[in-house]
């Protein structure tokens, strides 16, 4: 009995805080998604399904589709770039390993906005890169490197790549590389050994890296806002627009509710799967 009281005492502060500031607000979003729009801004009276009708609009479907493919493409590119780096880090001499890890992490201790802004300057239509590409006719006179979905993917890869490298490296470090020699001795090609031995061997790290890039990408807002232009907008921008520009909180909530479900459902599912295994 005394033990359960002590458990309560230790659990209550964080449980209560997160309940109040995470769980309640998330449920609030789900509830407000079913409220009427208040023309004066704020939340209207009465309950309705109408806010979800927005998902029938072609413009929103285009936005959703773009959100998914930009997130998927960014995740894919991050993986392709991170795998060889993780491999190299796991195999390189120890004293070099910690230096390289530091070199990978340090740029990401600088402010996120500043990193996006740096790309803003590089891709700028009057910048050196754009002028160079124009001079060799790789870029049309009126084309821009900035303000399109390509720029969103590039800058997103830049901001998320270390988050893909770190879990892959952590998994690769524990991988027994002599297994690859064994596979080669048994006649596998280098590529075959890589795909059939190395990749399954770091499966856990791969899944972590995939989730850690893909999920936040779905809710991406700053990168498309600063380098995406109108052709690179994602669902996060629409949520923000409904919130700040239109002051239509129920409509913003409806979109946020769908996004929350998309993000939280796999997590709850995985927890149940883990519980099932135990």
């Amino acid at each position: 009995m005394r033990d359960s009281r002590r458990e309560l005492l230790a659990t209550l502060p964080s449980f209560g805080w997160l309940g109040l500031f995470v769980l309640v607000p998330t449920l609030l979003v789900l509830a407000i998604a079913f409220r009427e729009t208040d023309p004066a801004g704020g939340i209207g009276a009465g309950w309705t399904w109408r806010q979800f009708a927005i998902f029938g609009q072609p413009s929103i479907l285009v936005l959703l589709w773009r959100t998914i493919w930009i997130s998927a493409l960014t995740t894919l590119i991050c993986m392709v770039m991170a795998l060889p780096v993780a491999w190299y880090l796991a195999r390189v001499r120890k004293e070099w390993r910690s230096r390289l890890l530091l070199l990978i992490i340090v740029p990401f201790w600088t402010n996120f906005l500043i990193r996006v802004f740096a790309w803003n300057q590089i891709l700028h239509s009057e910048g050196g890169l754009a002028r160079f590409l124009r001079s060799i006719h790789l870029l049309g006179e009126n084309d821009s490197l900035l303000f399109n979905s390509g720029a969103v993917v590039l800058v997103s890869v830049y901001t998320y790549l270390p988050f893909a490298i770190l879990p892959l490296y952590a998994a690769a470090e524990k991988f027994d590389f002599s297994l690859l020699d064994a596979a080669r001795d048994l006649g596998a090609t280098a590529l075959r050994a890589f795909w059939s031995v190395f990749v399954p061997g770091i499966r856990k790290g791969l899944i972590t890296a995939l989730v850690i890039v893909f999920v936040p990408m779905l809710g991406s807002y700053v990168v498309p806002d600063l380098v995406g232009g109108t052709d690179g907008q994602m669902i996060g921008n629409k949520i923000a627009q409904r919130n700040f520009a239109d002051r239509n909180l129920p409509s913003a909530s409806a979109m946020a509710a769908i996004l929350s479900l998309a993000v939280l459902a796999p997590m709850l599912f995985r927890k149940r799967e883990e519980a099932g295994k135990q």
Binding site: P25, L28, V29, P216, L218, G219, S260, M267
Partner: peptide
């Protein structure tokens, strides 16, 4: 785990509503 997986925009939006 929830704050770790919730995209920031959802966290900001839900707290604003609260």
């Amino acid at each position: 785990t929830m704050p770790l997986v919730l995209p920031e925009i959802l966290m900001g939006m839900s707290l604003l509503l609260l």
